[in-house]
Simulated scan of single mutants.
Amino acid sequence: MPQPLIDDIRRLTTEIRALAPRIEQDREVPAYLIDRLAALGVFRLAAPRAAGGAEAEPADLVEVCEELGRADGSVGWCAMIGAATGIALGYLPEDTAAELLADPRFLIAGVAAPMGRAVPVDGGHRITGRWPFASACRQATWLVGGVLVADGTQPPRPRLAIMAPGDLTIHDTWDVAGLRGTGSHDIEAADVFVPDARVFSLAAPPVQPGPLYEFPPLGLLALGIGAVSLGIARAAIADFAELAHGKRNPVTGETIAAKPSVRAAVAEAESLRASGLAYLRAEVAATGADPERRARLRLAVRTATRNAVRAVDLVYQAAGGSAVYAASPLQRHFRDVHVAAQHAMVNTDVLETAGAVLLGESVNTARL
């Protein structure tokens, strides 16, 4: 990844942090900020180079998502969704991928869970369904919905359908504790026609060659969760350090930074964050397509996310009453990281599946 991209993202950090309260209040990232991220190429990172994408390495997504997560959890999350979902274009005919990427504001988002129904018709499928947790759905130029294809001749088959946002209804449902600015509302399709060229399976061989498309697709979609969470933790540690040098004990007059317990909390939080990031980077670099390597990657993503939660909890608790005010950035970091950790891709099922693989037990690894 060119260093200028990270440098450009870092130059946006101060502006994004200033916007964070508004992003949370409005429950979405402003359109002009999405436009700036699109102009930088953030949402093209996993799209094929041959069709107009960047086709970056998975490690690059970790760096970008962590950096934007540090700026603001919701911005990092939307960037993660848009960047990682671009891998879908590697499974499409090249001319179809190029057509989707022709929009300079290209941002693909959606929900992979097969919560919709697809009926084959001439030239495509008729799609009906409703999908919750569709982050960045209001800003997306294309939306993905997981479906089960039922033609009556064989068992339902899971597929993904790429739909135009104008063909869908967005239900305003995202009134939540954290990551409020992601706008992760429900999206609904009612008998929407989708041509065959925009219906695909991540279980099928990708159309595009290259290392990026040999990377486990669900692993790529998951790794940003850990990266954004670690970015939130980095911001929380930095914000707490600023608070610790300004907040004083009313009796002694010393700043709370002088308290041994505060120093220990910061040290442990930083060790959790840094070790989680190192583990994630190492497994992303080592990942292959075999079940054990996929299991190790997903274990690293979950560990990164959980380490981030523990790190934020440590500094949140050390801040005392100062952290409970809505105006405190620590309050927002606390809520954001806990919501990130609720994602299905980092839940206990993943831990159990990874453990079964490492033990050599028979287990369904489709979700890895």
Rank of each mutant, 00 (worst) to 15 (best):
Q3P: 02
I6Q: 11
I9V: 14
R11N: 09
T14A: 15
L19G: 06
L19N: 01
E28G: 07
V29G: 02
R36L: 09
R44V: 11
R49Q: 14
A50S: 11
A56D: 04
V62C: 00
L68E: 07
G76F: 14
G76I: 13
A79L: 10
I81L: 15
A88M: 11
P93W: 08
T96P: 01
A97K: 08
A98F: 09
I108P: 04
P120R: 14
V121F: 10
H125T: 14
R126P: 05
R130C: 06
R130L: 08
A140W: 12
T141S: 04
V144T: 07
V147S: 03
A150F: 14
D151M: 09
R157A: 11
P158W: 11
I162L: 10
L168S: 00
L168P: 06
I170Q: 07
R180P: 04
H185R: 15
A190H: 12
D191M: 02
P195T: 15
P195V: 14
A204G: 01
P206T: 10
V207H: 11
Q208I: 08
P209G: 12
P211C: 10
G224V: 12
A227P: 01
V228L: 03
G231L: 07
G231W: 08
G231D: 05
A233H: 06
I237W: 05
A238Q: 12
D239N: 15
F240Y: 07
N249F: 13
E254D: 10
P260I: 13
P260F: 15
R263V: 02
A265I: 08
A267T: 10
R273N: 09
A285Y: 03
G288M: 05
G288L: 13
D290H: 01
P291Q: 08
P291E: 08
R298V: 03
R306P: 00
V312E: 04
A318Q: 02
S322P: 00
A326R: 01
S328G: 03
S328Q: 05
P329G: 10
F334A: 13
R335Y: 07
V339Y: 03
T348H: 02
D349W: 10
D349Y: 13
A354Y: 07
A356N: 01
N364R: 04
T365I: 09
